[in-house]
Design a protein around this nucleic acid. Structure first.
Lengths: 128, 128
DNA sequence: CTCCTTGATAACCTTGTGGTTATGAAGCTT
DNA sequence: AAGCTTCATAACCACAAGGTTATCAAGGAG
C-alpha cells in the first residue's frame, strides 16, 4: 500500500495548492519556462521554483534545460493513478441515496438501544 | 475558480495523508466510531479526532452522535468533484503525443530567441 | 450516586510548507 | 570581456500540520 501510497501522498499534496494547480493548468497549453510560469502570480521567482520542485517530485512535471531556461512539461501519468485511486469510491457517490436510506432506517429503529448506524457494509469489497 | 477551488484544496489536502486515506477506506465498509477508526493505528485518540476533523471540513465524512459515540460516515461527493477536476487532464495521459506538439507550437509563438524543448518537430497547436 | 467509556479540547512540541531576500552559476548578447 | 537574463540555492521567517499529554463533558453501567 505504500510503494505507490507514497506517490499518492506526493500527488495529492502537490494538488492541494491553488498556485500549483494553476501552474498545471497553464502547462496544459504547452511547456513554459520558470519565468513564464511565475508571471501570473505576484510571487518571487524562488517561490515559483519551489512549487515546480514539488510538482517535479510528485512526477507531475518533467523539466528540460534548453539554454539558461528550464522548460516544464506536464506529466499526467500520476494524475491518472490518482484518478484511478479515487475511482474506488465511485460506487459511493452513485449509491449514496441507497446508503442514506439504509442508514436512516437503521438508525431510527435502533437508536433506543444505542447501536451504530451501520451503513449496509457493502459485501462487495473490492479491497486492494 | 476559487469558490470550489477552496473545496478542492481541502479535499486534496485531506487525501494527502496515508492515515486519512486509510480511514476513508475503512469507512467504505460502514460507519465507525472514533475508537474503531483509530484502532488500526498506533496513534493517540486526539490525533484520530484531528484527522476526522480534517476529513469533515473537506466534506469527506459526515458525523452522527449516537450516544457517547460519534459515528463517521463516508461522503463521497467531494471525491466525485475532485475526480472530475482531474479528468480535465485525461487527454494528456491519453493523447500525450498530440499535446507535445501543442506545447511546442505554443512555445515557439511566445519565445523567439531561445530554443524550445524540442521533443517533436514542427506542427501547429491544437488547443481545445 | 459513582465509576467507566467515549471523544472533544487545550496547551505544547516538532516538522513541513510557503513565502521572502541575497547570492551565485551558467549562458546569451554586445 | 562585460553585462544582462534565467534560474537554483541558501538562509531565514511565519505559520500550519501532525503528533503528544492532560483534562473535561456527557452518557451508560453498576
Amino acid at each position: 500500500m505504500d510503494e505507490q501510497g507514497d506517490t499518492l501522498t506526493a500527488v495529492f499534496a502537490a494538488l492541494a495548492d491553488p498556485t500549483r494547480r494553476a501552474i498545471l493548468q497553464r502547462l496544459t497549453v504547452g511547456s513554459a519556462s520558470v519565468a513564464e510560469l511565475g508571471e501570473p502570480f505576484c510571487m518571487s521567482q524562488p517561490a515559483v521554483s519551489k512549487h515546480l520542485k514539488v510538482l517535479e517530485r510528485a512526477g507531475l512535471i518533467s523539466r528540460e534545460q534548453v539554454a539558461t531556461a528550464r522548460y516544464s512539461r506536464l506529466e499526467a501519468e500520476p494524475l491518472r493513478e490518482a484518478t484511478e485511486y479515487m475511482q474506488r469510491y465511485r460506487r459511493f457517490w452513485n449509491e449514496s441515496f441507497d446508503r442514506l436510506d439504509a442508514a436512516l432506517a437503521d438508525h431510527l429503529s435502533t437508536v433506543t438501544s444505542a447501536e451504530p448506524p451501520s451503513t449496509t457494509p457493502e459485501k462487495e469489497r473490492t479491497d486492494d
